[in-house]
Write a protein that binds this DNA or RNA. Structure first.
Lengths: 208, 208
DNA sequence: CCCCCGTTTAATCAAATGATTAACGAAAAT
DNA sequence: ATTTTCGTTAATCATTTGATTAAACGGGGG
């Protein structure tokens, strides 16, 4: 039994197989470039089953998008609203959390950004990111630090920029090949240490 | 004559009309989601003319992508290799240059990143970004500053992150509506001033 | 044993889509 | 004036693509 060879035997239902295949291909190629036949083939199932379980390509995509947003945001809110940590701790926590997440799912940010831009209503139905941020304890601590000298949103952008952008830009920054995958991951690992330091340095520029 | 009403009378050739329409729609929706009929309609020409002038959707796209990459990179190389400026000047120059460019073409980065990822060979034929960076005078000055204490590529990523990411993420960060377009541009304008300061602060963390 | 019902399959459909063709027109060349 | 060339158009083609259908399959309950 080939299945016994893996530690936890995977016995996916047809529905799960479709969803996993769809997640892989949608995130890799985006909604418009994805063919339902490719999903069916990747899942190893008959094309009709896709419509049998999920009604349509659109509906299936919505499931994948909702779960992707959840994956991206889960764990964030509790860090943002932890009353036991100061700003620097939260920044460090976010850095570690997201670099670990994005090393596992490097395509996730570009997927979300592209599909939200293509159809902003996808976001409405799920979460309003900006509100989640601006009403957080994190944001209040940030405001206390910036003291109205500068819009706190600048530092949200800076944080997301130094944290997420390397993954978004990696296809362009890395040479074409795979050779540098390990080096890239090594760089990202280093950034867990540096990002809190850099963020603090940027925030300190206000004291001048 | 309606054409006389605009200052510079626009007398676009059919080929130019197609290219402009294609540029608009490809950048807005991406290659896969773009229909040749939409381009023809936007250009106000017969569908067959698209193939008459550009052979295929693919070939037309390549023209648009090449010009987009050029638009994104033109002006950069001369800043990077200016022998009369120090690192901080170059950073300030890059910030101003790109914020002006991206205020005009906010969709450009996401377009390039998405399409390069979908088909990395598109980059080979044009430029190798990483090499252009690492062989520049800018990079040498950066290396002189970081003094092997940390990989200079970290600061390339930081610079691009704080500079470009806000535009890439704007559909997610801004509420759905248009109401905040002006506010967003105002924030970006402020960043011309702050980015050099933030970058310097991050670079100074090495002296500790 | 057989019937029922959820699942699966192969075949097929209709619409969308990129591309081509043949005819037409008009301006330039002869 | 006639021919040639280039641009343009409407119609059409072949393929792709999302979706549906009717039949077959197969296990559980009666």
């Amino acid at each position: 039994m080939a299945e016994k060879e893996t530690l936890v035997t995977v016995a996916l239902t047809t529905e799960e197989k479709i969803k996993e295949a769809a997640t892989k291909i949608f995130i890799e190629k985006g909604f418009a470039a994805t063919r339902t036949r490719d999903i069916a083939s990747e899942a190893g199932i008959n094309l009709a089953l896709l419509n049998y379980y999920f009604r349509s390509k659109e509906k299936l995509f919505e499931v994948v998008m909702t779960e992707s947003l959840e994956l991206f945001l889960v764990g964030l809110e509790e860090i943002l609203n932890d009353v036991n940590t100061v700003l620097k701790d939260k920044i460090a926590g976010i850095a570690i959390h997201y670099i670990d997440l994005l090393k596992k799912h490097p395509d996730l940010p570009l997927f979300i950004l592209t599909e939200i831009k293509a159809n902003p209503s996808r976001l409405d139905d799920n979460v309003v990111v900006k509100e989640m941020l601006t009403q957080s304890n994190f944001y209040k601590q940030l405001e206390a630090t910036t003291q109205k000298k500068v819009e706190p949103m600048h530092f949200i952008m800076n944080m997301l920029g130094v944290l997420v952008f390397p993954f978004v830009a990696s296809p362009v920054l890395r040479g074409t090949a795979e050779q540098s995958k390990a080096e890239f991951d090594q760089l990202m690992e280093e950034r867990k240490h540096w990002i809190p330091i850099w963020m603090e340095a940027m925030l300190k520029t206000l004291q001048a």
